[in-house]
Write a protein that binds this DNA or RNA. Structure first.
Lengths: 173, 173
DNA sequence: TAAGATTGACGCCTCAATCTTT
DNA sequence: AAAGATTGAGGCGTCAATCTTA
């Protein structure tokens, strides 16, 4: 069921008028703005902290986590693409860079020779171990710390509902 | 006050072990993952809908909204940079592209000749008017629709607390 | 023909250096 | 010297075309 917000007077303006004076106060835009701003700030702070401490981009860390928790510590390119909300081409290039640093390696997939596995290396596992403490501490400080338990639970509930939106559009899924 | 999460057994593993088997279930990582995923999906869907319907990138729309609600429909580059969570260089290039499409124009700032105003043009105001209906409808469908009022309010509260984190790092602010 | 992955072209951002004005 | 804005170099992602295998 689609909830149609009640019509607001600001929504109806003569075309060519002084252009949406009250638009900045729109509740829907404000919420979106909040979400985008929070995401930007959080990824920026956590990313630079992790980069400084461990020389590891935040996106690589996420990829390493997914690989580490996958069966045999490996995933196909396509699976990784879904996990990271990246296009196929984007994953190819990210994996290229991670292979260069020997954090992961490509492996043939015997059951389907079109697919290629990307597998965690020992070096990748070590890097993940080292980075984990730093990142979890950053998460505690910037994401968990400012919220009480009620906030945190409500946030999970709301984001989960948004995540299961059937009209969604993921590149890799 | 920083809430220190209770120690989880998964956090302590022998170095060089099979590497963080339970890491994927960590509550903090899961919440961050949810936030990043929701942001990615939402900006992707709303962005492509707006682009298809009006030929306007989502980031431009946000910029136009900020300009439209500013005094005299204009902001300095630095102010716009803060509003959009973009670096100074990023804003320069974005404004370059918007000037090219005649949605905004640069104006000298008499009071401080180092600054330059970016001002909404009539054409920019029209583009904003046209895009607003599409975007608000998309917001209703993808952001407001899936949530009930309780969720929505809780989401605003939580994100606001995260936004006022004193340890934050904005490029333009 | 379709699916999985890669590649080339390109868009958009960041960082650091630079220029102008304060 | 410091602040506001711009520029060049470079990183990282998307899209569309391509190649290989099913």
């Amino acid at each position: 069921v689609v909830v149609q917000s009640e019509q607001r007077p600001e929504d109806q303006q003569a075309p060519g008028s002084n252009t949406c004076a009250g638009l900045a106060d729109d509740e829907r835009l404000a919420l979106m703005r909040l979400l985008v701003g929070t995401h930007a700030r959080l990824t920026r702070v956590l990313g630079s902290e992790l980069e400084r401490a461990c020389g590891l981009p935040l996106t690589w860390f996420v990829a390493l986590v997914r690989l580490a928790s996958a069966p045999d510590n490996r995933l196909t390119m396509g699976e990784l693409s879904s996990e990271l909300a990246l296009t196929s081409g984007g994953v190819t290039r990210m994996v290229d860079r991670m292979v260069e640093r020997q954090l992961v390696e490509r492996q043939h997939c015997p059951s389907d020779r079109r697919s290629v596995y990307v597998a965690l290396t020992a070096q990748g596992a070590n890097a993940l171990d080292e980075a984990t403490a730093t990142h979890l501490e950053g998460l505690d400080r910037h994401l968990i710390g400012p919220l009480n338990e009620t906030d945190r639970i409500a946030l999970v509930v709301a984001l989960t509902k948004l995540g299961t939106d059937p009209t969604g559009g993921c590149p890799g899924g």
